[in-house]
Simulated assay, not measured.
Amino acid sequence: MPELISDLIEWLNLHPQFITIAIASLAFIESLAMVGIVVPGISLLFATAALAGGANISLVYCLLAAMAGASTGDICSFFLGRYAHPWVLDHWPFKQHPEWVVRGELFFGRYGIYSVVIGRFIGPIRPVLPFVAGMLYMPPPRFIMVNLLSSMAWAPVYVMPGYLVGNSALELSSKEQPTMDWISGELIGIAIATTLIAAVFITWLIQRRSKPMTGKTDKEAKEK
């Protein structure tokens, strides 16, 4: 895998016009069931985002590319689980690792629709949850809506760190004395704010999911 990363980075260095396409493709692969489990998509995405920052490619284009790739990969995984799960479960890698699907089912059973959002930020089960959601016949319009909204939070969290590293390297290598201009400060502020919002949102979803269960148990205990 290190050779794969170095080869990709070397090729993109020679062809920077394909960097945004590479970001979309890597986000798609990282989100796709079966493939996303075994391919180091996050490492490749970080390296490619760093290249984008170093090449001074628009951050907006990078984020849109990541959102499009991630949401498309999840939607493909969803419909793969909905219509082809018997065949998929009987082949690699799920045949060798059935526990991956079991974990996804348990997580989905606990958090329901919220698992589509929460699971995006949990690496080991992230590529499996859309597949499980389709396998358990979650309504497609509901999944697609939640998936698109959650991809808007996922893209900045996974793209901006690499982009900021590459952009900082570009500033340090410039002929002028490196200074932190307002654009770099704004990017860092957005990265921190996005991470905090995502963390608060996930915490809120978990608490909202657990409170009704606790309340119901307390009510039943009082009645008894």
Rank of each mutant, 00 (worst) to 15 (best):
M1D: 12
I5G: 11
I9H: 07
W11N: 05
L12D: 06
L14T: 12
L14V: 10
F18L: 13
I19T: 10
T20D: 11
I21L: 15
I23W: 03
A24S: 08
S25N: 01
L26I: 15
L32I: 10
A33E: 03
M34R: 08
V35G: 00
P40Q: 02
S43N: 11
S43V: 14
L45G: 04
L45C: 11
L45T: 05
F46N: 10
T48V: 15
T48K: 13
G54R: 08
N56S: 14
N56F: 09
N56G: 11
I57S: 04
I57L: 15
V60I: 13
V60L: 07
Y61E: 15
L63A: 03
A65S: 12
M67F: 12
A68I: 15
A68Q: 08
G69F: 04
T72D: 07
G73I: 00
F79I: 04
L80M: 15
R82V: 01
H85Q: 12
W87S: 13
V88F: 01
H91L: 08
P93T: 10
F94T: 03
F94D: 06
H97F: 08
W100F: 05
W100P: 01
E105I: 04
F108T: 03
G109Y: 06
G109F: 01
Y114F: 12
S115Q: 08
P127L: 05
V128E: 04
P130F: 07
M135I: 00
M135K: 09
Y137V: 08
M138L: 12
P141H: 10
I144M: 08
L149R: 11
L149I: 15
S150W: 04
S150E: 03
W154S: 06
W154P: 02
W154Y: 12
P156L: 10
V157I: 06
P161G: 02
P161R: 11
L164E: 11
V165W: 06
G166Y: 07
S168E: 04
S168H: 07
L172T: 02
S173H: 07
S173D: 12
Q177M: 13
P178R: 06
I183F: 03
E186A: 12
E186T: 15
L187K: 04
I188D: 04
G189L: 08
A191E: 04
I192Y: 03
I192W: 09
L196N: 01
L196R: 05
I197K: 00
A199K: 12
A199R: 14
V200D: 14
F201Q: 07
I206L: 07
Q207Y: 08
Q207N: 08
R209M: 07
R209A: 14
T214Q: 13
T214W: 06
T217Y: 14
D218V: 10
D218P: 00
E220F: 10
A221W: 09
K224I: 14
